[in-house]
């Protein structure tokens, strides 16, 4: 069909035009359906990979910020924990214990007796404690953590949330209002372990401390 049409108007240009056109048509072949699918597939794969890399990257970066956040939170908790431990260690120090005991009206223990659980015999003679025998206080009190700027409000708030309610500053408040029996056993526990049997087994050979 093309040969007669080309031969008629401009015969001299026919071989040239034909020579030019033919390879052009061959160079741009119609895309095969399966080739197109392949291209779309490859592009899709590339896109998916890109999206995946992006997603992973965004996720990792976000997690990194979360890590920083959690680390800050951890540090805060460590610091709160430290403040509470310090408070605890201060209250555990012998000077503070002795001071608290005196504030509660406790005195130095008298001579303790001991009960032999096997024979049931009482060894030694228990004596009543001298109500005026307070511990001396030559050893200087350690620096109270609260006085160097630890937020004591935070500490007591945290202590109040503790499950047993017997932690930190709460313990002392509780001790300040005991039943007489409790006062004695905590006296014995804090001042001298050996005084405990006499107060428990004899139902109070040590008279309750005076509340002056």
């Amino acid at each position: 069909m093309s040969t007669p049409a080309a031969a008629m108007p401009q015969p001299q240009s026919t071989p040239r035009a034909a020579a030019v056109r033919r390879p052009t048509l061959r160079a741009l072949p119609k895309l095969h359906r399966r080739h197109r699918g392949l291209t779309i597939g490859i592009v899709g794969l590339l896109l998916a990979a890109l999206v995946m890399v992006l997603t992973v990257n965004i996720h990792v970066s976000n997690t990194q910020y979360r890590v920083v956040e959690l680390q800050a939170e951890r540090q805060l908790l460590v610091q709160q924990n430290q403040a509470l431990s310090q408070q605890n260690q201060y209250l555990e120090s012998p000077q503070a214990l002795s001071g608290s005991a005196v504030d509660l009206g406790m005195v130095m223990p008298g001579q303790a007796g001991a009960l032999d659980l096997e024979s049931g015999a009482v060894a030694g003679e228990a004596e009543a404690a001298d109500s005026a025998d307070r511990p001396s206080s030559f050893v200087q009190n350690p620096l109270q953590p609260g006085s160097e700027g630890v937020d004591t409000l935070d500490v007591s708030a945290a202590a109040a949330e503790a499950p047993s309610g017997l932690l930190g500053a709460g313990a002392l408040e509780l001790l300040a209002q005991p039943t007489p029996g409790e006062a004695e056993s905590s006296d014995a526990a804090e001042e001298s372990g050996a005084a405990q049997p006499s107060s428990e087994y004899d139902g109070g050979t040590i008279p309750a401390p005076s509340w002056d």
Partner: peptide
């Protein structure tokens, strides 16, 4: 460094 019991 802290020393919870001071001079004990």
């Amino acid at each position: 460094r802290t020393y919870p019991s001071g001079s004990v």
